[in-house]
Each structure stands twice: as structure tokens, then as C-alpha cells.
Amino acid sequence: MKTLSKLEKILESGKFAVTSECGPPRGVNPDVIRKKAELLRDAVDAINVTDNQTSVVRMSSIASCIILKQMGLEPIMQMVTRDRNRIAIQSDILGAAAHGINNMLCLSGDHQRFGDHQKAKNVYDLDSVQLIQTVRHMRDEGKFLSGEPLDGVPGMFIGAAENPFADPFEIRVPRVSKKISAGVEFIQTQCVYNLEKFEQWMDGIRARGLHKKVYILAGVTPFKSVGMARYMKTKVPGMDVPDELIERLKSVAKEKQADEGIALCIETIERLKKIEGVSGIHIMAIEWEEKVREIAEKSGLLPRPKV
């Protein structure tokens, strides 16, 4: 055990992990995030807190993580390299560690073109792979990037994202290997809809033995409607939604589509659980946190282990 992370404990003990996520509010009210997080209590092991996702300004991930921590929950602080240079990154890592945050997800972040501040200048002093290196260096070497020693070390369990459905497909396994070389300990994937392609990717992961070097949590997102499925397919970059899923949602009455979306999500989890090398599930119910417990329950993921 390298950290005090509950997520690390669960994964290290060989148990199947479940995580979910919360998007912070577009305002100053902490009750918004408290309400969302409360819905996830005991339904998941740890909760990702997004960092200005899709480049839309929200309450900071670090502040929201502190709120979760105060509630006795286990946050995974997402951090993008889009908005901070290495000075701010290291400083925020120290601050998060001081507040007892033990998990971090290292991301490059969506380009600001998608957000509400398209005229912004992006930073990208580091990329996501280098962010992994940075946290690892601070934690294991006890040093800043400058080489100067730091007082105490941030006990972060280090994660990253990977999108098995982005192009070019051939590099999606090598890219995981690259992140492992940089020091990543867990991977949360993009939402899996195309199971065949995901299995193909996992074959590649196992062929290189990477599943033994990193914990892979497969991402799922339930569809609320056929409209959402179509939007994900056509508008969200790097998303692979097979036509038959859209057909299936279309085949049921509009008021039943949400239930069908949940059913579909549960079936997906059932299949993901059986794939060798998948160590957990990451349920991203976008603005639908109240459904996470039901999904976890019906997928046989409850109760969550006490560690």
C-alpha cells in the first residue's frame, strides 16, 4: 500500500471496485454537490469530481473534493493540464493532500473550444502522461519537479483515463503501456457501448500483461433517452455508440426509454465483469446520480466492501 486511499485498498485486496462521478455546480452553493454525493454514499467506493469538464467553468474540483471528504466520502480529484502550469499543479496537489484527498485522475482535459470560454488561452505546460510522472515523482521521490525536496509527500493513488474507442485504435494499448511507464496505477475508461471493440482492446491489454500492472475500471454511462444516445454518437468526440443500441432504445415507447437505458447499462456491466483484467466499474450517470445505486444494486455490485 502506497497511500491511504480506500480505492487502492479495495483494488489491492483483489475486490471488484465501483466508482462514480459528480460534476460540481455552476455556482457557489455547496449543497448541490453534497446532494449529489449523498446519493452515492455506500453505492460506490470512490467518487470522481470533474475538473471544469467540457471546459465549462464550475466550482473547482479540489474544493468540491474537500466538501466530499468532510462528508466522510472518498473523492477522486480529477485534474486537467489545460488550465494550470506545473507551478499551480504541484501547489494544488499539496493542497489536496493536506485536505486528505488520496486519489487523483490525471487528464489533459477537453479543449476550450467546447466550453463557455472559447477565447481562453490554454496552458498545457504538461500533458496527462507528464502529470502522472509529476505526481509519482512528488509521492515517491519526495521532490518537486525542480528537484527540490518537499516536506512530507502527497499520498495520491494515481489514475488516468483511456479511451479505447479513439483513433488510431492500434495505439490505444501502447498508450496504456506508456501511462504505466509514467507511473499510473489505475485507469478509468471512456464509456463502453461497443463491447466488441472493448474486448478487442482488452485482448491487447492482456497480450502485453498490462492488466497485471494497472487496475482497469471500465466506464459506463446509462442513456436517458434515444436523443441522448444519438447526441453521444454524433456530437461527443471519441464516443463509439453502435447503431443497434440506438435501434433498441427507439423500439420502446418514449416514457420507457430511460428504463431501457438502465437495463442496457446493467447488461453491459454484467458482460464487463466477466472480462479478465477488468478490475472495476466506473459509473458515470451524467446528471442522473440518483440512478447509480439502482444500477449497482441490479448489477450485483452491492453491498460495497468495508475496508
Binding site: 498545457y124 502522461v129 507528464q130 479513439a166 483513433d167 488510431p168 509514467a182
Partner: peptide, 16 residues
């Protein structure tokens, strides 16, 4: 690269 990533591509690369 739109993000000037030194270890890309990111997850947003689609069909080239």
C-alpha cells in the same frame, strides 16, 4: 496538436 501534447493523441482523436 491543438493541445500541444507531447505524449498524444488524446481521447478526442477520431478518424484522423
Amino acid at each position: 496538436c491543438s493541445k500541444s501534447l507531447l505524449n498524444g493523441p488524446c481521447g478526442g482523436s477520431s478518424k484522423g
